[in-house]
Write a protein that binds this DNA or RNA. Structure first.
Length: 562
RNA sequence: GCCUCGGUAGCUCAAUGGCAGAGCGCUAGUUUCGUAAACUAGAGGUUGAGGGUUCAACUCCCUCCCGGGGCUCCA
């Protein structure tokens, strides 16, 4: 379904003659509406009521922002070359009118199937003209003839970005890249992978401390599963769906349905709850091309995802612990975050009473933890309300990282049960949550927040050993080997460049420590150290440095020791 | 997906219808240096892809791809 949305001062249309066999009879000859949001609608083959509802919900939402009270629906076939046959198109069009009439908006429409004369007077502001597309996976546009040789190895072009941007820093430190043939999917280079991996290890350590269990699940499933979970109705636009020899499969945009399936493999007891199940698989979301933005929004992402199956009376305690864990995870990087509570969206599953119950549980937990929060009306997930945590990037834009969602819908759809103390079957509720959100996005925030100065425990290279002249090469190599044996990530610079050059290079790479070795150190069997912050110490013993370093790394300190 | 600005060597950028260039990086040689850039030389390009206009296209036109910013959406 294609929609052209216009914010107008005035729209006028007049019926000339019926154009199709299917057309609306007994319609007013002429209409004129002032101050309205107009939707020109082309119904395409395969469109269903879910798209129609979503389109109307979005339009009403938008009308609210623009403070318009009149909504005009106008059938307009010319937006698409893939039209639905007229009778079905008209039915869906009428369904949309009824949907719109449920709102507070005053709804008008132009009749289906007529030749009409039309006059529109569009307002001039930036949001006055907008197009939208709802429906099946977007049609792939293929270039007439594509060069398959050179273009394959084409990197994304990040020229002109400010020095503080995570992409510029990634280029300097060789952290990751994107390629034209895989838009929105990250290539982690060795340096970047260390950062990604260290962050993962840190989260896993934390989850162990908080009694989580890790699972791994498939990355795709028959669309039958996505029908049960509701993703087909509410998320299809963003899914990669493809045909595999008669089976329609969808790559997973979320882990939830798989967690439900694991839960259902056995009878569960109330004694098993709460059960905290974490799943860090890659997820695939077919984001519209204009939405992609460096590591901030990608199509292939990793979440520090977990689902907590629990009794309703355990919700508050779980939420409280979770908010504590969140503060710990963000605290280590000294990141400021902003909490938000999002309520029921127009497109949602389940009844309002249940939503009300879930929303107030979240609110209580926030208040109990004395966390200040903003209210975001109608921004919840389709299956439940949520607490979000937003963090700012280097340009001051806010990105959603953590999200904690209380869900009564999926347990019901998947028929989850546990046996209670009373011996009867009860339905558990599920807490979906990611705390860093997408690892990709969080790393982008981190790179910009730290400006590439990673704490030693995450640094791709923790120590670089620099020799001052040929005479110290051997000694430098010895020191390098000893550090390596101690599992320190270390590099050796025995090139014939000047010391100044080597130091500059190490500084630009933001290596936390440089060990500088010349004849003096060689003779005295000691070392000199220079930290990234420019401080230096001479005459240290290697052993004492190693033990200090190991402590700094093990404790994941955010400050360098000198 | 929409609006808008871009895509030239690994990176950052010049060249504007008429011989595709510089700095850094890389390679080789010289140099052996004490806390943020030693010197010399060399290699490195289907100018994002495809088509068109022209005697001639990196340059002008069209389509597509990718990226930046803004919408929309969202982790």
């Amino acid at each position: 379904m294609k929609i052209l949305q216009l914010d107008v001062n005035k729209i006028e249309f007049e019926l000339i003659k019926p154009e199709l066999e299917t057309y609306e009879r007994d319609q007013p000859k002429r209409s004129e509406i002032d101050e309205a949001l107009v939707l020109f609608i082309a119904v395409e083959s395969g469109d269903n009521e879910a798209f129609g509802s979503k389109a109307i919900a979005d339009a009403i939402d938008f009308a609210g922002k623009l403070k318009r009270h009149n909504l005009v629906l106008y059938p307009f076939a010319h937006l698409s070359s893939n039209l639905e046959e007229p009778q079905r198109a008209m039915n869906l069009f009428h369904y949309m009118i009824k949907e719109a009439e449920k709102s507070k908006m005053k709804v008008f429409h132009a009749p289906f199937g007529w030749n009409k004369s039309l006059k529109v007077d569009v307002k001039g502001h930036p949001l006055a003209e907008m197009s939208r597309n709802y429906g099946e996976a977007r049609e792939a546009k293929v270039a007439k003839k594509k060069g398959y040789n050179v273009a394959l190895a084409k990197k994304a072009d990040w020229a002109g970005l400010p020095d503080s941007d995570h992409r510029t820093i990634a280029e300097k430190q060789d952290l990751f890249s994107f390629q034209e043939v895989t838009p929105g999917m990250v290539y982690w280079h060795p340096n970047g992978y260390i950062i990604y991996d260290q962050l993962m290890k840190y989260i896993r350590d934390k989850l162990e401390e908080y009694d989580y269990q890790m699972v791994a699940t498939p990355i795709m499933a028959d669309t039958a599963l996505w029908h049960i979970s509701g993703h087909i109705d509410h998320y299809r636009e963003n899914m990669f769906i493809f045909d595999a020899g008669g089976h329609e499969l969808g790559l997973k945009p979320m882990n939830c349905p798989f967690a439900m399936l694991i839960y259902k493999t056995k009878k569960r007891s109330y004694r098993d709850l709460p059960w905290r199940m974490a799943d860090f698989d890659k997820l695939y979301r077919n984001e519209i091309s204009g939405a992609l933005s460096g590591l901030f929004r990608v199509r292939e992402l990793t979440q520090d995802d977990a689902h907590i199956f629990m009794r309703e009376d355990q919700a508050e305690a779980e939420l409280t612990t979770m908010l504590k864990l969140t503060s710990e995870l963000y605290g280590i990087f000294k990141l400021d975050f902003k909490a938000k509570l999002s309520t029921m969206p127009d497109s949602h599953l389940g009844d309002e009473a249940t939503w009300e119950k879930a929303t107030s549980a979240l609110k209580k937990a926030l208040e109990k933890n004395r966390i200040k929060f903003e209210l975001k009306e109608k921004e919840g997930a389709f299956y439940g309300p949520k607490i979000d945590v937003d963090v700012k990037d280097s340009m001051g834009r806010e990105w959603q990282c953590a999200t904690i969602q209380l869900d009564y819908q999926l347990p019901q759809r998947f028929g989850l049960e546990y046996t209670g103390e009373d011996g009867k079957q009860h339905m558990p509720i599920v807490l979906h949550r990611v705390l860093y959100g997408s690892l990709e996005r969080f790393i982008a925030i981190l790179i910009e927040h730290l400006q590439g100065k990673f704490p030693t425990w995450m640094s791709p290279v923790q120590v670089r050993v620099l020799s001052i002249s040929d005479k110290a090469h051997k000694y430098a190599e010895e020191v390098f080997k000893q550090l390596k044996a101690q599992h320190i990530r270390v590099e050796l610079d025995n090139s014939d460049k000047t010391l100044q050059y080597k130091i500059r290079d190490g500084q630009l790479q933001q290596v936390p420590y440089m060990i500088i070795l010349g004849e003096k150190e060689m003779d005295a069997k000691n070392i000199s150290v220079r930290s990234r912050s420019g401080k230096q110490k001479m005459g240290l013993s290697l052993d004492s440095l190693v033990s200090d370093l190991k402590k700094e790394i093990a404790e994941r300190k955010s400050e360098l020791m000198l």
